[in-house]
Design a protein around this nucleic acid. Structure first.
Ligand code: ZN
Ligand code: ZN
Ligand code: ZN
Ligand code: ZN
Lengths: 137, 137
DNA sequence: AATCAATACGTTATAGCATAACGCTGCTGC
DNA sequence: GCAGCAGCGTTATGCTATAACGTATTGATT
């Protein structure tokens, strides 16, 4: 069941390399991590990675984790362009669990309605320990 | 009703300077912003600011906004040590609205319960436009 | 008072994350 | 052809954060 990722066919070479790297990573990677992993493929400068990441994030194929300054491949084929996504990040093993919750999203909508705030984008990141790491401890 | 902040008496000089700066700022400040504002008070190095910020955040007197790499003074005398706090950040004027929502928190607890994840800390940041900025546009 | 541990401080250097600005390449549509 | 656009490669720079060192201050212990 691992690597059940979709790889669109209309990516540029750099985008494909970056997304491929994220797809095979067991944990979030920083742009510089990605760069180091792709030097053998000819990449040399941070901008090459950042530009690819921008496009991938824009299309919902990858996500940025603000609290880590790092990136993950989208784990859910259906998540693209949906609203709120939450990430549970394990401090032990680094694994990230991506999920959506309609109740939270609706609750946020209610809050926005009463305050007149127009939500454009929400980041929700939960730090802690996953079940597996808790069991091991 | 502005500046209704509490300033504890047991802060060190640097902590007091940093918190005072945050209290008077209309929008989040980066550590380097704070440093520049406090050079006249004798501060010279980023670490002086970061160390003060660490303590202030630890005590709940200030909050770090992950999506901005910036800091705000806590707006709520009662928020310290409570669970989940959400921030609505206006992209127009920079103002930050801090709020808590028991339903979201409870919902998160439910999710954690079913997955076996142990939540240690949650960051929730909403980007968008505040009512005032929408009206002005 | 002398000792010790804990916390904060100041400074220099370095690491890690992100973008500006330039010019070039290779498409697509007219 | 050629204009417009997206992507590319490179160099330089800026912003964010911490490592490592030694000193100073405080407060409790003896
Ligand atoms: Zn996703
Ligand atoms: Zn884990
Ligand atoms: Zn607060
Ligand atoms: Zn506003």
């Amino acid at each position: 069941m691992a690597h059940d990722h979709v790889m669109p066919t209309d990516l540029t070479r750099n985008q494909e390399l970056v997304l491929g790297t994220l797809n095979h990573a067991p944990a979030p990677l920083s742009a510089y991590d990605i760069l180091d992993l792709l030097r053998s493929e000819g990449l040399r400068a941070p901008l090459q990675v950042y530009r690819a990441l921008d496009k991938l994030v824009e299309r919902g194929l990858a996500h940025r984790l603000e609290s880590l300054n790092a990136f993950v491949a989208c784990a859910d084929e259906h998540c693209h362009r949906k609203g709120l996504i939450a990430f549970a990040i394990c401090e032990g093993c680094g694994k990230v669990d991506e999920f959506a919750d309609a109740v939270i999203e609706e609750r946020l909508g209610t809050w926005a309605g009463t305050t007149g705030f127009k939500v454009e984008r929400t980041t929700m990141e939960i730090r802690g320990k996953c079940a597996e790491c808790l069991k091991a401890a």
